[in-house]
Design a protein around this nucleic acid. Structure first.
Lengths: 219, 219
DNA sequence: ATGTATGGTGTAAAGTTCACACACTGACAG
DNA sequence: CTGTCAGTGTGTGAACTTTACACCATACAT
């Protein structure tokens, strides 16, 4: 089967930056490419858009196919289309990003992916294509969104916390996402002002220190 | 000549929202399509990306071809790719925007454009494809950029002013771009704080009112 | 002289951001 | 039982930003 056009057409892919927090650090989901170009190289998941699917649907499909991750709300980052970004042919990619909890997530590499793993954002391997650029843009956008407005992206930050959490735990999550330390008192004022925290009147115990109050959040 | 691929490929276009101010109101540059689909319908300029050109280069080229407008710094807005947005075949478009002065600009419709005209943003005709959506997104982004940070976009606002301008003229420009009235005193404080205004020690004359001081701006 | 149309000016209140230091308490060790 | 450790919890002031708001000045026309 082949497809013929009167004029040349580029291929169009979707690539997806999936961020999560694991072991207290910001991670990104990468796949190891099974095929050339950049065979065996790590890359952000993605693949070709089908002719009858919307961009974001295609991105979600590729993500699930390659990594087993599904049901995440993707936000468009932009299009990347340098003529030589793919050695095979002209490929224009539309990048998406999302922030997801990953604790109970099972990664299942498939399709074009030999492997799918979480990588520490501070220890990235060499990446295929222009994925390093895309990922850097996504990282910057993530830091921007998380603490500025109360958006869906910011909501998803709470998924890295247990149902009952301490304010110190919450601060650690937001610091990880933002990539910089936050002032304790100012953080507590911010979270109280911007989110509906419920004081559970319970305390942690077991630490070699003063117990911390536990909270949950209502949206 | 034809081009054959093993898998189907979408066409990729760039579409460009060019804003300007004319006669004190915000205008957008539209072209009248010469060919189907949407023949004779108005649309934002744009066209197919060539295989060896970057997205923004292609956008600039299409803009010049269809309207005669060149040399404008385009900013990417995002990709639009609903499967049915073009009745011919799958077409994914990458949208760009810019704000340009238009007084000495000569519009020259060519290529796929029967005509190129400035339209008042408040009196838009029916637009081809999903261009109404794209244009609405661009309008929102424009208002955002102009008064918030001192960006390239904001700089270009001064191009709608003569070399020597009054603060009232400047306020009118920024109000038009932002789409809402601004407080006179607060605007004057803002512009003085954010831009390097030079007091020319000259005054307007001839109005049936008190003369206004003239300024120029240094970047 | 008067009317009219636009130019030009300052201040206070509210809100936001940022920096910053010390006492509290439970667990554990001795 | 006592001391130390380690993380918890709390408030204020300064700087800055944002917003609201009203009146006199000046040139021209009549």
């Amino acid at each position: 089967m082949s497809y013929t056009y009167e004029y040349p057409h580029p291929a169009v892919t979707a690539d997806i930056c999936i961020f999560s927090i694991r072991e207290g650090t910001l991670k990104v989901l990468l796949i190891q490419r099974l095929i050339d170009p950049f065979k065996d190289c790590w890359a952000i998941p993605g693949g070709f858009i089908k002719m009858d699917e919307d961009l974001v649907i295609g991105a979600a499909r590729e993500l699930e196919e390659e990594t087993g991750v599904s049901g995440v709300p993707l936000e468009q980052l932009g299009a990347y289309g340098a003529p030589d970004r793919d050695p095979r042919e002209r490929v224009i990619t539309v990048a998406f990003m999302a922030l997801v909890p990953s604790d109970q997530m099972v990664l299942a590499a498939a399709t074009d992916a030999a492997d799918a793993q979480w990588f520490d954002m501070d220890e990235l391997p060499a990446l295929a294509f222009d994925h390093a650029t895309i990922l850097a843009d996504a990282r910057a956008r993530l830091a921007d969104k998380v603490t500025n407005r109360v958006t869906e992206t910011a909501k998803s930050a709470f998924q890295f916390l247990p149902q009952k959490f301490t304010l110190a735990q919450a601060q650690a999550v937001f610091e990880t996402l933002k990539g910089e330390p936050l002032d304790k008192r100012n953080f507590r004022k911010w979270i109280a002002a911007n989110w509906d925290l419920v004081d559970l009147k319970e305390k942690t115990s077991g630490g070699r220190h003063r117990p911390a109050a536990l909270y949950s959040v209502d949206f």
